[in-house]
Design a protein around this nucleic acid. Structure first.
Lengths: 200, 200, 200, 200
DNA sequence: GGGTAAACGAGACGGTACGTCGAGTCTTGGT
DNA sequence: ACCAAGACTCGACGTACCGTCTCGTTTACCC
């Protein structure tokens, strides 16, 4: 169960090095401005040689993606699936509120910003972010969307990704550009509006 | 006589150096991966001393923001105001299509990614981006929103920023994370859904 | 009386600028490591524009030579001529002792080191040092040497320069390389040995 | 295996980098005005990173001293010991002539001037010059002085350093300030006079 | 005594080198 | 056999001066 280097790397004696590296990356991303989260600093913090890092990841971006995925493995991210009380807007509001709360925590905020930077700078990294971080998030919503769709609350023409975007994009946008306060009120408003947008 | 600096800005005697720097920054951002858009490269391309750049801008981020603002000064942003045919969804669709088209142009795509990177890395830069780039965009929509609001197509509770986010955020999200194709069809769908979301 | 720029420069309104520059150069040479005695620092200290300095001197070396000459104009350097008590060795010892004392004063030490650096780095400057600083020193000894020569204490084959070198070179050498203590005892020994060396 | 650094010196793994740096420094000092002998130029010429130089030497001065010492290691200094024909003046004249000849070679002249500049600018460097360059020279004379002393040609009160200075200082002085021609005739005269000066 | 030209202070300009830091590669020792 | 440690080359960082160049602003001289 993932005790192996992610991409079929030689069975590598030390899972330890891998874990230490990922943890160090997470820790540094949380406590330093991102440009100071250098491979050198990560290696030092992890008590690992730089070569050991380069042997496993081609660049910092790839490492950071794995670090976030690693973190998400440990804590089933945003509390698992979307609740289903029958009231779609309310259920989405609950999730968005918790998303907003997480984004308010500096570590997670910094980590996500780091991830976005890497995704913006390199296309391949962006694809990895999509697969390992965004797609799982969409999957968490998919089930609830399916229910809502069969209850006639979501237009059949609106796919899971599209629905996800209607719900999450405004929060993402406001988080990244800080066009306004990112609070529970905003989460509620977005949930409500998104429901209307998706309605048949 | 061109011996004037921007807006009574402190020092800058020669506008020439300023302009050359901004143009060089734009050109390099368009043709190189962003990490290679170094101050050194910009200075060389602009035929300007590094010190001249550092005398005007504290870091690359500030310079890039000004470069984008400079570009927007020259080309009245994305074609000026939002059209008003009376059909809000159609009008927004027109704008979103042109936004999508612009984002498909590699130079603008690269430039915007650069801007986002800087905004993600430094809070002060993010604020500048908001003021100099995002706010003007919102302003372009504001008039149309006002009309729509008085025509009863937008809920009075939805402010300009909020409305802007409902319209633009999904496109922004898809552009940044490439969760799906970013084309005219998507622009139309988003415009339509956003209108419903904003309705009273 | 030297109230004019040294080399027939246009009648130059301000002797003040010239003097202030030279004094600033002397002051800085006395208080800073020589590499920090920059034209920029001298200009700032003198309250003078950099261009004003470059208008008068082609490089720092030329400026420093003039500065030393300026200083020597003010204070008839090492107390004027060599005494003549009839005892050559004793007379020379008196002078060498005062030379040693001067070299022990940090300002003069630093200034001379600066001068030597410039002379070592540029041939033209070396020539100027020779003319404006060393030759006058030799001249101070010449009269005493003449007396000694007619008293049969100096071989007629030994010219003034040669005699000067026999007397001063060991002190200069020891000052520059610190091969040993540079004190009155050494001054006396050198004076005595030099007399024997010069004898017919 | 050449993997050894100088004298059990702390880090330096590759002797290659060290040697290349020293040779480059010597070459550049011989062919450029000293202010152009920059660390950057040395690194480039040596095919070595600047950091590698700074890792080994704190400033250019220290590097130049080692470079000269390195050169002297390769070519047993100025032809080895002072000859001993029984005639002290003649023996010293031979040596001084070869010193004069060496100083006439532009490379050695330039190198020595560089060394003097560094010694004049920094006290610690001066001490290193003394230890690594001057002291060995004195040692070469010491043996001959000892012989001469027991032959009653040198006053017992004149130590090796003092004797060395009497012999070499005039040449050094004339070399540095060019008070007159630096040729064999001068070498002979100085040797002769120095012998008289040292006599009991 | 007012008008003009020069020299001035200030300091921005295009450059070069500084000394530092990190990237990514490679070598050495230790376990 | 693999790994931490860290030296290696390379290149960008941000700073400091270089020597040149505009700028207005004083003077000092000549009408």
């Amino acid at each position: 169960m993932e005790n192996d280097s992610r991409d079929g790397a030689p069975p590598g004696r030390s899972e330890r090095a891998r874990t230490a590296t990922l943890e160090a990356a997470l820790a540094l991303a949380a406590e330093l401005p991102y440009p100071q989260v250098t491979i050198e600093a990560i290696a030092a913090r992890a008590g690992v040689g730089k070569a050991t890092i380069y042997r496993r990841w081609p660049h910092r971006g790839a490492l950071m993606v794995d670090a976030v995925a690693h973190r998400n493995d440990r804590a089933a991210t945003a509390g698992g699936a979307v609740p289903d009380t029958g009231d779609l807007a309310a259920d989405l509001a609950v999730v968005l509120r918790s998303v907003v709360d997480e984004l308010a925590r500096p570590e997670w905020d910094a980590l996500l910003r780091a991830l976005c930077v890497e995704a913006l700078v390199d296309t391949a990294t962006r694809a990895r972010v999509l697969d390992l971080v965004v797609a799982p998030q969409i999957a968490l919503f998919a089930e609830r969307f399916a229910t809502a769709r069969s209850a006639g609350r979501i237009d059949d023409a609106v796919g899971d990704t599209e629905a996800f975007e209607l719900v999450v994009a405004p929060v993402f946008h406001r988080w990244q550009l800080r066009t306004g306060p990112l609070d529970h009120a905003y989460a509620d408003a977005v949930a409500r509006r998104a429901c209307r947008a998706m309605a048949p």
